[in-house]
Amino acid sequence: MLCEKCNKNEATFFYHENVNGQVRNYKLCADCANELQKNGELNIKDFTSSPFDSIGKFFANPFKSMDKLFSGVFGETPSLLSSISSGRPAAKCDCGMTLNDFLENGMAGCPSCYETFENDIEPTVKRIHGKTVHEGHSPARFREKNDLKKQIEKLEKERTDAVSSENYEKAAEIRDKINELKNQLKGE
């Protein structure tokens, strides 16, 4: 996709702003983004050639709505700000959503989109959250699976210890237990 300002360079900078329902979208190359920033149109402070390398900076100052905040008028935080690093914008999820649409609208089409585009959206997720792997609660059906996995990991360790101390009988017992748990995991 080409930059919508110069129509020459590849657009690598995607800007979505929603200030009290007034939406502005830009698809720009780094040079034009820099220029707009200098003109004050994007008003992203701390803007450098690689503007969003730090999550602190990302949330510290980036949006026009933040300036309005100080005069007492509040804007929505942009839902998603992304720069595509993926080379397959036409990739499609079963629900019909393309990667390009996903990144442009900042909204997934269905839960499976996250699996279909798992690696493609990772840089975007990192820019939003600073991290890319979930921590914390999981649904009950995953908790059971996780518990089983943890038990297996623990037993694997015990088996290695048993083998290295030449306690083969114990190692065999543990191996049987591991197989049993693995079958349970498969059966889920």
Binding site: M107, P111, E118, V133
Partner: peptide
């Protein structure tokens, strides 16, 4: 809807995870 990588799957990626 849940993935082990991204946690609870939400319409907008800004709500992923918890």
């Amino acid at each position: 809807a849940y993935s082990e990588k991204y946690g609870y799957l939400t319409h907008c990626p800004t709500n992923l995870g918890t």
